[in-house]
């Protein structure tokens, strides 16, 4: 994905068990922070035809 031109911070991997609620919260926080920092995605958007 990085090679293609997607910022590495947009893609995150984590292994979270259903029992690890705190870890889940922390990961989500981290992901949102990182993605907010790079701002809205300008690439890899498919514009679908607008139907009136």
């Amino acid at each position: 994905m990085e090679l293609m031109g997607i910022e590495p911070d947009r893609l995150h991997f984590s292994w979270i068990s259903s029992a690890e609620s705190t870890k889940f919260v922390n990961v989500v926080k981290e992901v949102t922070e990182k993605v907010k920092a790079i701002g809205p995605n300008t690439h890899f958007i498919k514009n679908t035809a607008k139907v009136a």
């Binding site: 990085e2 090679l3 293609m4 031109g5 997607i6 910022e7 690439h43």
Partner: peptide, 9 residues
């Protein structure tokens, strides 16, 4: 850099 990569592909 990221932008160039995107444009390259």
């Amino acid at each position: 850099d990221i932008e160039d990569k995107w444009r390259f592909f």
